[in-house]
Write a protein that binds this DNA or RNA. Structure first.
Lengths: 110, 110
DNA sequence: TTTATATATGAATATATGAACATATATAAC
DNA sequence: GTTATATATGTTCATATATTCATATATAAA
């Protein structure tokens, strides 16, 4: 146990490849558009691309590009129905991560 | 309670400014160098700049630039002693966030 | 089977970002 | 005071990234 009372990280420094993967993972959350999509899928799973772009007031292509990234990082899944594609979240960790981030940001404003 | 059994996020979509702040916050973790520094400060608080750059095999200036960012985002603190500057972590959330990220990355490799 | 709609993709462009180099500053050693 | 050491900062350059525009694809409607 280290001073932070943790079992997971302890004194272990991730190796180079792990650091790279970790950075890639966090990078996804470092963009407003992607965060917005994730929050929207939280409150309403199975949301279509057009609805996302409507709510976010952004071009459909911009949304599709970001969804592609979220898909490749396996943070969302989709279901095709005719010409519609419905997206949903695909990772339990997202929830925890967004919560901690929100807590941090909210505390920072005090 | 939403389907993810959460009290914190629920159906609430952060407003534009919150999304911006949140993205800024996560962006910090989206870089290998900064992650490495954070992990090193985890395992050894009160680490000097030279030691960091030695261990990481990177130019001291590159480390200083990243430390500046970490300082401004209040993720690290420092203590000056003569011409040495010792850095430490400054946020409990970092620990949780890094842990969740590591879990995600490790699971992704299976 | 032509037209409309939903979504995806490729290319171009603008902006952001990280590292290197040069240099500044501050303190310690001589 | 001069030199050496530790750290910080400004600038430049290469690269990464997000958005837009144009277009492709696939399915539904007419």
């Amino acid at each position: 146990m280290n001073i932070y009372n943790s079992k997971e990280i302890d004194e272990t420094i991730p190796v180079d490849e792990e650091l790279t993967d970790l950075a890639e993972f966090f990078k996804i959350f470092g963009d407003k558009t992607r965060l917005h999509i994730l929050f929207l899928l939280f409150s309403k799973p199975e949301t279509g691309v057009n609805e996302l772009s409507d709510v976010m007031s952004m071009h459909q292509t911009a949304i599709s590009h970001q969804l592609k990234i979220l898909r490749h990082m396996r943070l969302v899944t989709y279901r095709k129905e005719g010409r519609n594609v419905f997206y949903s979240l695909n990772d339990q960790h997202i929830h925890d991560i967004l919560n901690i981030g929100m807590q941090h940001v909210q505390e920072a404003q005090k």
